[in-house]
Simulated scan of single mutants.
Amino acid sequence: MVDERVAGGPEGRRDRRGLLVAALAGALAALLAGHRAVPNVHGLGSLVDSVTPLLGLGVPLLALAAALRRSRRALLAVALPAVVWLALYGGAWLPPAAAAGPAVVRVASQNLRAGNPDPAATVGAVADAGADLIGLQEVDDDDRVGAALDRRYPHRAAVSTVGLWSRWPIRESRGVDTGLGWDRALRAVVAAPRGDLVVYVVHLGSARAGQTATRDETLTALAAAVRADPAPRLVVLGDLNTASTDRVFAPLVRLLHDAQAEAGQGFGFTWPAQLPVTRPDHVLYRGLTPTAAGVLHTPDSDHRAVTAGFRW
């Protein structure tokens, strides 16, 4: 009897069709595991790093293709990128191991979007979530923002288009040079109920396809400022224009913890607001214990807000 697989019968044809799916599955697994090896030429490596969590969407698509081809070989191959993705990012979906007890301080960060038609509505939604400290970026209408926040947050520090609104007194504040040629970051010392808390509100340089040099330089400058800061308790709020999976984020990873990674659930994507696929907005910290972290969909901005609670 002639073996159908050798003679090109139905089973053999299915196996050959499954080879393409298996090859794609192997390539996806290699990219997931080795995305940092992609050369960062014109920001290509950073882009791949940033979208790597989304590459997991390829797993069900490949599994469907393998099922349609009725190829056991392809289905087995698809298990490889699935295992790699789970090893890298599956932990983000586990229940957070946040500290028990109420937060002593609750913070939020929101990029308002330049030209926001109703910034008061945006910041009002953030305030209604119960933050004690609100860091804002792309503030171009101080009057409307102030009118919405000043009653609940009587203490304010601002530099250029970034600002901090606080329920508690701000002892001092100053601009922080991140290499843009003007200050688009600030450092403030907040007199929180259990002691001083240093807060940075930051908007780093923009990143575009093939143009990440300015963003990379500003991130390096921010890391240098944080490294030199002696404050025992410190929080960074802001739009850093990069995801925590990006290789250029490494200098901050070595200095600070990520509230979403430690006390949130899921990736916490924030941009674009209607259907977010990445997280340029962050709450980073040291010297504190996170109790919660999340994302808030606010009106009229192209970014969602990020929130976190801490105790010490």
Rank of each mutant, 00 (worst) to 15 (best):
L296F: 04
D216H: 08
R36M: 03
L284Q: 08
S166E: 07
L32N: 03
A30P: 01
G90K: 09
L55N: 10
V162S: 12
G101R: 10
S244E: 07
P169R: 11
L237S: 06
A65S: 11
R5I: 13
T218V: 03
V105Y: 04
V59I: 15
R144W: 06
S50P: 00
G309R: 09
F267L: 15
W165E: 07
V84C: 08
D132H: 15
T298M: 02
F267H: 14
P39H: 11
E262W: 00
A308F: 05
D128M: 04
L75Q: 10
V159E: 14
T291A: 08
A108K: 01
L255C: 05
A92I: 02
N241A: 11
W165L: 02
R184P: 00
V123W: 03
R17G: 15
D183A: 15
V162H: 05
G268Q: 07
R174C: 00
D196S: 13
G56W: 01
L20Q: 04
L136Q: 08
A127C: 12
N241W: 08
A224W: 06
D140Y: 09
H155R: 09
A147F: 01
H297F: 01
D150P: 00
A66E: 02
A65I: 08
A243T: 15
V248K: 10
L20E: 02
P230S: 11
R279A: 15
H282A: 09
S301D: 05
D183S: 13
P96G: 07
A158N: 02
E138C: 03
V38E: 09
V145R: 00
L19R: 15
T178E: 10
A292D: 14
T278M: 12
A23N: 11
E138N: 04
Q211V: 09
T245R: 04
V189T: 14
P53C: 11
R208G: 13
A191V: 13
V2Y: 07
R194S: 14
V198L: 06
P10S: 14
V107F: 06
A97H: 11
R254Q: 12
